[in-house]
Design a protein around this nucleic acid. Structure first.
Lengths: 208, 208
DNA sequence: ACCTGAACACCGTTCAAGT
DNA sequence: ACCTGAACACCGTTCAAGT
């Protein structure tokens, strides 16, 4: 058998398409079955559940992260990795939402965490703090990509923040910032960079 | 009219109960109606949608944050606020999930963001960076409480990480940490503190 | 002003039955 | 080994009709 599980691959392929079109919330097995010209029940022959499909998607997207760690301080390596993760998540719409919705379980996800732990392994801190450091780091990256997706979706309708005049008196600073149009500059690369540096500098002054 | 909207209050009260019992995912209008001895459709007379109920919950829980800013540096104030937010979120099960699921919209939520912005208002940075700083800060706190909830729910079944032997070779560091039982120490207060200090120290070295 | 009943258009998952 | 049809037990929301 040269080719194995062709339909399984097709289901995953169609799932990526459906996810891009519908988002995580509106992704349904019935829509997926229509896309594949299959019955819903036959999808269940290939995958045990909807979550099993999602776990496979998570496995794949994280497998697409490719990185060559040329830099040698752990700070530089975390930066490089951060960019690489961010890039892959952006190339697969709603994959950040997927990572947020389910705890790490896919083999590639666990391997990624292990690789990140290796980067800070030599530092003088307990395993708890190291693990937690990587959690905070990953949460930051995933959250950034999630917010970015949200901003992209709502860039047309202008009430990113309730447009009411109430805002002017109850949250004057926020109101002012909104008037200045800062929400158009939020998802930019320099923001991502700033946050990543905040974390890494923070790790530096607290981990050792 | 001395008392206004008694049923509206009852619906909110029952919603808190239902949220605690079922979590966000399993919260349904039909279950809520049963709890209230009402029809589903009559709930819709009081609230336009399920989200409208959730927005009211968000409004309430954030309104419960009470804080007396005795400290005077912005770093100390962000710390104090962080503890206060964390405490309220923990007192209302699944409220962190609620905040994650919906963008800031409830009046009290916007007011909170404004108060936090005020704390760093005097710093020498652009409004974009200040707003983003507060976003990162809030995301951290909310995420911590979410993860804590998840840990609490899964403390019984031991496969917090896939228990497979595969882990030993593909993610050896993670495997080792798991053996050491670090996952029992993750949700603790010193972890929250560490992360909050990481952020604040990071802000300090990047914002100015 | 407030509530009911019934319906619409969906869900994820299971399972006997087919080929 | 793979797929179908039908069913089960749910969803959020709407709306004419009641009091």
């Amino acid at each position: 058998m040269v080719q194995k599980d062709m339909t399984k691959d097709k289901i995953i392929e169609a799932s990526w398409e459906l996810l891009q079109q519908e988002g995580l919330e509106s992704f349904s097995m019935r829509k997926l079955s229509k896309k594949l010209n299959l019955t819903v029940s036959s999808i269940y022959w290939h995958f045990a559940s909807k979550e099993a499909i999602f776990q496979e998607l998570i496995h794949q997207v994280i497998g697409e992260i490719n990185i060559s760690l040329t830099q040698n301080t752990w700070q530089e390596q975390l930066l490089e990795y951060g960019y690489a993760i961010s890039e892959v998540l952006r190339s697969r719409p709603y994959s950040a939402q997927l990572l947020m919705a389910y705890p790490p379980k896919a083999p590639n996800y666990l391997k990624l965490i292990d690789n990140l732990l290796k980067i800070i392994e030599h530092l003088d801190a307990s395993h708890e703090y190291k693990f937690y450091t990587i959690s905070v780091y990953l949460n930051y990256i995933i959250n950034f990509e999630m917010d970015l997706m949200y901003l992209k979706l709502n860039s047309d309708k202008e009430d990113l923040l309730s447009t009411a005049d109430r805002l002017k008196t109850s949250a004057p600073l926020l109101h002012q910032m909104k008037q200045e149009g800062i929400f158009n500059k939020l998802g930019h690369r320099n923001m991502f960079d700033y946050g990543l540096h905040v974390l890494i500098n923070g790790f530096e002054s607290n981990l050792t």
